[in-house]
Each structure stands twice: as structure tokens, then as C-alpha cells.
Amino acid sequence: MPIKSYLAYPQDGKKDVLISELLNISYCDVIPSENEDLIIVVTETENQKQDDTLKATIEGLDSLKLLAMVSGFNTPKN
């Protein structure tokens, strides 16, 4: 059950668009910075496959410039 955190850098002037697009994606929490063009994204998925798909979805967003992973964990299922 992977939990990962990322720094998401929006395209110039697209921070708000990126935030709203990220908010529409399930399994991910969005924490925008108040004063910089940077958004923290935390994903929590059921398995590796779902994690991979989710990452691909985020990376596919036009408003995203760069997605950099900060930490990744796997917790036991039960």
C-alpha cells in the first residue's frame, strides 16, 4: 500500500489550474504553498499498479511542469 509525496511545479501562471486538476484525481491529497509556485502532492494507493497509473495520470496534466518524488513508503496490507 504505497504512500508517496511529491513536489509538483506548475507551468507558469497555471498554479490554480493545476490545483483544481489535482483535486479532481482520487487517492491524492493536495497541499499548495501560499507564497511560492509549488504544490505538495501526497498519494495513497492500494497497490503498485494503482500507484503507477496514478503517477502517469498526474504526469499527463498539461498544467504540470515537473513532478519530483520526495518520499515513498510501502505499508503492510494487514
Partner: peptide, 22 residues
């Protein structure tokens, strides 16, 4: 763990943008 993941990200962000606020 989720909180820790968030904190790691905040720390990484702070190294790049000192004074960044969340």
C-alpha cells in the same frame, strides 16, 4: 507515515524555497 511523507515534502520544499509557507 502519511504525515511524515508530507513533512518530508515540506522540508524538501523549504530547502529550495526558504521561507515557503504551507
Amino acid at each position: 507515515i502519511k504525515k511524515m511523507a508530507i513533512m518530508s515534502a515540506m522540508t524538501a520544499a523549504a530547502t529550495m524555497f526558504p521561507g515557503i509557507i504551507f
